[in-house]
């Protein structure tokens, strides 16, 4: 007898809690897309594909589905740190398989060498190159994300990735002179 009462009580409790949990799951449901959006907002939007995905949004999707957060070289450690905060995971160092964090760069077309093949235009993920077939192309520097994707397709190798020029507006108070490293 007492066992049945206990069982009943347990069942009743289970039902009640189940109902509460079920209600809470509906009431406080977190939109799953929201997470992708949040991750996407952190990613640097270079659309460079160094992470192995065709753009930042797909990588954001992949992170939301459990991919590693350290595959974004343009974002570097700052982005990894933010992603770690958002995802509640440990911030790891950048996966060197996907590249190194580098200075911000901008693509520059050596315009007298450009043959107007439009290949870089098609490669640019943010439509930052203008030009037409047989016409010289040029990069809209303000829109360029420095993703590097236009360099490879160029048949005459006339695209350079140059570090963005220093300006006093974007100066970070580096008072020590910049070390000059010998690059072999």
């Amino acid at each position: 007898m007492s066992i049945s009462i206990a069982l009943l009580a347990m069942a009743a409790l289970a039902l009640i809690f189940g109902a509460i949990l079920g209600y809470a799951a509906i009431r406080f449901k977190v939109e799953s897309d929201l997470l992708v959006e949040q991750i996407d907002a952190i990613l640097p939007q270079t659309q460079c594909g160094q992470c192995g995905y065709p753009g930042c949004k797909p990588y954001a999707q992949a992170i939301a589905e459990g991919d590693a957060i350290n595959k974004c070289p343009p974002g570097g450690d700052a982005t990894i740190k933010k992603l770690a905060d958002l995802m509640g995971v440990e911030a790891t160092s950048l996966d060197s398989a996907h590249g190194q964090e580098d200075v911000k760069k901008v693509a520059v077309i050596r315009e007298d060498e450009c043959i107007g093949c439009t290949k870089c235009i098609q490669a640019c993920p943010v439509d930052a190159i203008v030009g037409a077939a047989k016409q010289m192309h040029t990069v809209i520097a303000d829109e360029c994300t420095g993703c590097d994707l236009c360099v490879e397709p160029c048949p005459v190798d006339c695209i350079d990735m140059l570090p963005r020029p220093n300006s006093s507006a974007a100066w970070r108070w580096q008072l020590t002179p910049i070390d000059i490293k010998q690059v072999s």
């Binding site: 930042c56 949004k57 829109e143 994300t145």
Partner: peptide, 11 residues
Amino acid sequence: SDKARERFERR
């Protein structure tokens, strides 16, 4: 990056 995202999505 917001602008780049918009451009990328439009494209």
